[in-house]
Design a protein around this nucleic acid. Sequence first.
DNA 1: TAACAAGTCTGAAGCGTATTCAATTTTCTT
DNA 2: AAGAAAATTGAATACGCTTCAGACTTGTTA
Lengths: 245, 245
Amino acid sequence: MASGPAETTQSASGSDAMSLSRPAQTRQSRVRQKEGAIVSAAREIFITNGYARTTMAMIAREAGVADGTLYTYFENKDALARGVISDFYARLTESAQSGVDARKTTRQKLEFLARNHINLVMEEYGILEMLPILTSSLSEYSGSDIYTLNKHYVGVFDAIIRDGRARGDIAVESKVWMLRDIFFGALDHGAKTMMIRSNKTDTKRLIDQLVTMMLGTGAGGGSLAERMEAVAERMESALKQVEDK
Amino acid sequence: MASGPAETTQSASGSDAMSLSRPAQTRQSRVRQKEGAIVSAAREIFITNGYARTTMAMIAREAGVADGTLYTYFENKDALARGVISDFYARLTESAQSGVDARKTTRQKLEFLARNHINLVMEEYGILEMLPILTSSLSEYSGSDIYTLNKHYVGVFDAIIRDGRARGDIAVESKVWMLRDIFFGALDHGAKTMMIRSNKTDTKRLIDQLVTMMLGTGAGGGSLAERMEAVAERMESALKQVEDK
DNA sequence: TAACAAGTCTGAAGCGTATTCAATTTTCTT
DNA sequence: AAGAAAATTGAATACGCTTCAGACTTGTTA
């Protein structure tokens, strides 16, 4: 990610990395910390001003370093912006995964994922807007850092879908990537709409609508699986009555 | 839109605009034509190089004018890019409206709209990618040229939905803007996905899936979900009979 | 501990590109 | 045909990304 200062330390101290444990770690951790500070500063400025209107000088000032220092950590402005996005994806994936793991039903998992996504996207609005600018200057998007991170992130969604199919909650015939595009496309568009109107209250309704669509039934109460479940229960009790006669 | 040369002609020739009809029209039409040429040139270059990598000099050369001339037609690079987008929206709306008018059922209308959208977006890929760059530098998005054109365009969709509801094809309880975000969000995301994979054959399937979701029924004819749905209904009514005894 | 090496930081200079504008050319009017 | 208005030009300017030679810090070795 950062082609910066940290990397040569490893090869310099060679195979015996632990000969003097503290100093080496300290330098590395200092470097890491500064990289983090630069990314944070960049995020702030990018969010408030947008990609085009933020200058490297602004970021340097916010991070408390000289202009040139930025270039020892990131190759250029684009790379720095990609660093910000990478960091965003990392946090997004982390919170998504842990939250999804804590839910039981397919519906709950999807709802959490959607809420998490839309909340973070709206909180740090503008970060994902930079994506098209940066990817278009990339020769190969597949294989890039961002591509990998994005793939990881949507992997959380994919797992829910696969699992949901195994449980019978989601129709089997639709391709995963289509559901993915529908899901995230709707959320991103929706986030934009709600940002424009400065209206965050409709989030819940959008998520309901979307997840319900994913689960394949019409707007009516409950997923197909849930209704089958209910029907099965009623059948059992009805059968018991019949049998008892 | 263009604050350029054409505008003063009106006030100069005053209220009696038709005193000498040909020359006045000729100058205006020439100006219009040149503006069109500039927008076309800009579109070409923007599409092949992306916003950041196209220089005003490139556009000027392609349009066959001097650098400075661009600024008599458009205030700056952003405004020129907005001009390109405006033109795109105008063509998009035009083809969408006429195509939709020619279809009868709600499904056919939606399918056409989706196909039209995804085709044009993919043909001139990169144009809509510029949108976030440009809108973020706008002080007020609402009220801008692009906002109005976009509103016009999605109006085509909105009309289909309203009509579809009147016909009973579309559930009434979901908000229009949500369906809109889902519809166009999915299409834009899907277009991106298919551009990355250079795969255009999946378009039809995506559209089917999406439109079917809009229309509220399960997936296409005779799917597993649909059959299970039907079975569930029959079981429910059968149970009711048993339970009522 | 001192001297050295490697790593890190700095900010002024270079460079490319958007934008301006005084001078020129073209078009229209009378 | 002369004069006025509009349109065009391209060299000069300004701004912001990027570079790089030198200064400074940190870690290493004798």
